[in-house]
């Protein structure tokens, strides 16, 4: 299938990252490599952002991890992952062999963790990393970096020193000043911003059993269609603050959502929760976007962005 039209180049003054299409699967919703192969057309696929990877293997949180809400879900996976060593050993070869483009999503609880991970990425010629500084699901660690512009600037600078590839920093929406965070990241030398991570949320269910209420509650990160307005707002704010490209996410489910995010400054997209509903959605959206552009004689993705922004 000719998807030449969808070729996407994320670039700033120093570096660029070229993707087959602007559709990327979001971290934590797609596994590490080819887990979704049965469902997608790899030709239509921009990239996978891997499950968040830490230095050491993590078993994640105990207890219930998923809570469904109207239009979305709350998760508290707690960054369960195989650890960087095993990733390099067992998952990276699959990605390379099958020529699947990917962003290595990393997370840590200290600045040293991130620096080491960046170095490992550098040594293994990993083309792009996405730094999760905004995970609400682990007790210590990344959230603090993600919410303070000074520490975020420091952290990003340190990662930048160790890593020469395409550096994406993923921002948290759980802040009152997203512009300050975006600016810090850009000044520290990041090549791109992705946003948003999940919002903090609390799901509660009370069942009246016998003569008392049985309470179930899950506190974690809210994702899915219900967070789209927040994501649009945040991306719009980030766009006002920085010049580097933005990968937008938060509740994307359909073609119209892509247009809306472009209108506030998105240069590419990630799809998270919607993969759970329709496992083929990433390649389907790419195909739909391609068809839309052919039908309406839009030359390429750059032109589409122009058309939307100028209207």
């Amino acid at each position: 299938m000719g998807i030449e039209k969808l070729k996407t180049v994320l670039k700033n003054k120093n570096r660029s990252l070229t993707l087959k299409t602007p559709i990327i699967s979001a971290s934590g919703t797609y596994g590490y490599s080819d887990e979704y192969e049965d469902f997608i057309d790899l030709n239509c696929f921009g990239a996978i952002s891997t499950k968040g990877i830490t230095l050491e293997k993590r078993l994640g949180n105990d207890g219930d991890r998923i809570f469904e809400v109207k239009g979305g879900m709350i998760n508290r996976i707690g960054l369960e992952n195989v650890g960087i060593e095993k990733f390099i050993e067992t998952k990276l070869p699959i990605l390379r062999k099958k020529k699947i483009d990917f962003l290595l999503n990393i997370a840590g609880s200290t600045s040293q963790d991130y620096e080491k991970l960046a170095l490992i990425a550098q040594k293994n010629n990993i083309e792009a990393i996405e730094v999760n500084v905004s995970c609400p699901n682990v007790k210590s660690g990344c959230l603090e970096f993600g919410l303070n512009p000074n520490s975020l600037y420091d952290l990003t600078s340190k990662i930048r020193k160790n890593y020469d590839g395409f550096l994406i920093v993923k921002l948290s929406p759980n802040t009152s000043d997203i512009k300050a965070l975006a600016t810090a990241v850009e000044e520290a030398g990041a090549d791109c911003i992705s946003a948003i991570n999940t919002l903090r949320g609390l799901g509660i269910k009370l069942d009246w059993v016998g003569k008392k209420f049985i309470k179930k509650s899950v506190q974690g990160g809210l994702s899915g269609a219900c967070i789209k307005p927040v994501a649009l707002y945040m991306v719009n704010q980030i766009k006002e603050a920085v010049k580097i490209p933005i990968i937008a996410m938060g509740g994307i489910e359909k073609l119209q959502d892509l247009f809306e995010f472009i209108s506030v400054g998105a240069d590419a997209f990630q799809i998270g929760t919607a993969n759970f509903i329709n496992p083929s959605i990433c390649s389907n959206l790419a195909k739909e976007l391609n068809e839309f552009m052919i039908k309406n004689e839009i030359k390429d993705f750059e032109e589409l962005k122009e058309v939307i922004k100028n209207d």
Partner: peptide
């Protein structure tokens, strides 16, 4: 049974603990 999201093993939402040859695993 456990509440699940992806239903194909990637999201790690429906985890239980098991004992595999003396080692506790997810």
């Amino acid at each position: 049974e456990k509440t699940m999201a992806c239903s194909i093993g990637v999201c790690r939402g429906c985890i239980i603990k098991i004992n595999k040859q003396g080692k506790i695993e997810n």
